[in-house]
Nucleic acid binder design. Sequence first.
DNA 1: CTCTGATACAACCATTTGATTGTACGATAG
DNA 2: CTATCGTACAATCAAATGGTTGTATCAGAG
Lengths: 117, 117
Amino acid sequence: MVVSELSGQDVNRIFRALADSTRRDILRRTLVMDVSVSQLADSYLMSFAAVQKHVAVLEEARLVTKEARGRERMVRGNLERIRQAQRLLDRFEEVWRARIDRLDILLAEGDPAPPDT
Amino acid sequence: MVVSELSGQDVNRIFRALADSTRRDILRRTLVMDVSVSQLADSYLMSFAAVQKHVAVLEEARLVTKEARGRERMVRGNLERIRQAQRLLDRFEEVWRARIDRLDILLAEGDPAPPDT
DNA sequence: CTCTGATACAACCATTTGATTGTACGATAG
DNA sequence: CTATCGTACAATCAAATGGTTGTATCAGAG
């Protein structure tokens, strides 16, 4: 079970969520420790609601999870999802490498006699 | 020279560019071989101009480069940029690991005497 | 030289995004 | 119980996105 389970939409959401500095910062913070939404909101200049929305985007991308604790919602970064994103990028490497492999095959199966025979 | 040279905006552009299925497909194709913009356009249902814009987004993110060849513009995937993105994701892993390290330190330096002494 | 193919770019439009404020509601501290 | 804190959610708005068509340019085929 690699990354195959991810739909195109899922992948879109993951990278979209990562494409914002504030959200990346939230992700970093919540990877280090559990933080409530209001604690997060205190860290930025924008409104509480704005931070809440950023968290929602991260949550939809499954990059963080929320857990009720008393009246607070603790946000926790989901490392496994980040690893999935890494595997997605690995795929590009593989595609690129496959192209080289093909070239290798051409070279390996090339006429043993020099071209100017 | 790691990923430090990248501004927040640069990172935004990279992940934003990756957050679209068509653009990821273009990236895959251009990693395998050089393709002209019109060849790419033939591969999708959308208009030429739309594909052209997608290529432009990838180009601004430096995920592809364009090279004039006759009247065509050959598009080439930039693997190095993808590796930079991978390193960006590695950073999240590192942040997470640092948190564990801190926990290790706490455990390692914990009071040798049991808490209920 | 002229026609055509490949690209670039502007103008336009619908939808989404990122932010705001305001309202409502559940959980907790006093 | 009541006041307040933390959250959720709706409405609103400007700006960015993703797409379109139309026009202009430029290089190569005939």
